[in-house]
C-alpha cells in the first residue's frame, strides 16, 4: 500500500467517523442573533446562510441598515458554524485533521456563544 492509498484510507475513515457522529448529533449549524433580536441567521459551515429570520419591527430600520445588520449577523453565524464544526470534529478526528480545518478556513472561535448560551444546544 503506497502513501496515496494510506492517505485516501485515512480520509475515508475520518469522513465515516464524522458522518456517523453527525448522524447521531444532528447537522452542524451556526447561529447568531442581533442583540435586540431583529435578525437571526442560521448557517452551515462553509455555506451561505440557510435561514434568515427577521423580526417585523426590523423592517423599520430601512433597507440599508437592515442589509448591514444581516451582513454582521451572518458573519457571526458563519464563525459560530466553524467553531461548532471544530467541536464536532475534535471528538472523532486526530489533531492533524482538526488543524487542517483551520488551514482551509474554518477557524475555531471561543466556546462561549451568544445564542441561548445553553450547553444543551451544543453539538456533542
Amino acid at each position: 500500500m503506497d502513501e496515496t492509498e494510506r492517505a485516501a484510507r485515512r480520509v475515508a475513515n475520518t469522513g465515516r467517523q464524522v458522518a456517523e457522529h453527525a448522524a447521531r448529533t444532528g447537522p452542524v449549524l451556526g447561529r447568531a442573533s442581533s442583540p435586540d433580536g431583529a435578525v437571526t441567521v442560521v448557517a452551515a459551515p462553509g455555506g451561505p446562510p440557510q435561514e434568515v429570520r427577521i423580526a417585523p419591527g426590523a423592517l423599520t430600520m430601512g433597507p440599508r441598515a437592515l442589509a448591514d445588520e444581516i451582513l454582521r449577523v451572518s458573519a457571526r453565524a458563519s464563525r459560530d458554524a466553524a467553531t461548532r464544526l471544530h467541536r464536532t470534529v475534535e471528538r472523532v478526528a486526530d489533531p492533524a485533521t482538526v488543524r487542517a480545518l483551520t488551514e482551509i478556513g474554518f477557524e475555531r472561535g471561543p466556546d462561549d456563544d451568544d445564542f441561548g448560551g445553553s450547553y444543551l444546544r451544543g453539538s456533542r
Binding site: 451561505p48 429570520r53 427577521i54 423580526a55 437592515l66
Partner: peptide, 24 residues
C-alpha cells in the same frame, strides 16, 4: 465561494414583502 456574505443590497420594495419574504 464558502458562502460568506460580503455585500448585500435590499431594494426598498423588498421590505414591503414582509419580514419572512425578506429573509427568504
Amino acid at each position: 465561494a464558502t458562502g460568506e456574505l460580503k455585500a448585500l443590497d435590499l431594494h426598498p420594495n423588498a421590505l414591503a414583502q414582509g419580514p419572512d419574504a425578506v429573509g427568504r
